[in-house]
């Protein structure tokens, strides 16, 4: 297959239902899950000017996403589609214990 999907960008949006927003524990879970994928993954609070590397725990903690805000996720690379799906699921399911 010459036409590989590497250049394709997958995106997802998910509402942050966590009661206190993106604080330390959810940030650790999101980062750990993101690191399981080869894809380049970025997130931001909807409409924010800058995308944040989802694999950087310091930057994810610092993004201060509030309860009820929408998180945008985009990824590119071999497993990008699965990465976006997994991260959307993590946030939508309110960062269950054992995830990530």
């Amino acid at each position: 297959m010459l036409d590989r999907a590497d250049g394709q960008i997958f995106t997802g949006n998910v509402r942050l239902v966590h009661a206190v927003g993106m604080h330390a524990r959810p940030a650790v879970k999101l980062t750990k899950l993101a690191k399981k994928f080869q894809a380049q993954i970025s997130v931001r609070v909807a409409g924010a000017p800058e995308w944040i590397n989802a694999k950087s725990v310091a930057k994810i903690m610092a993004m201060r996403a509030a309860h009820g805000s929408t998180i945008e996720i985009k990824a590119s690379g071999t497993d990008a589609e699965a990465a976006v799906a997994a991260l959307v699921d993590l946030v939508a399911s309110d960062f269950p214990d054992g995830a990530g």
Partner: peptide
Amino acid sequence: AVMAATEAAGGSTLAQVKAV
């Protein structure tokens, strides 16, 4: 410690863990 451990959990190298 929390950030170093988060980075380490992903299998990163010592240099990467220190940098984070």
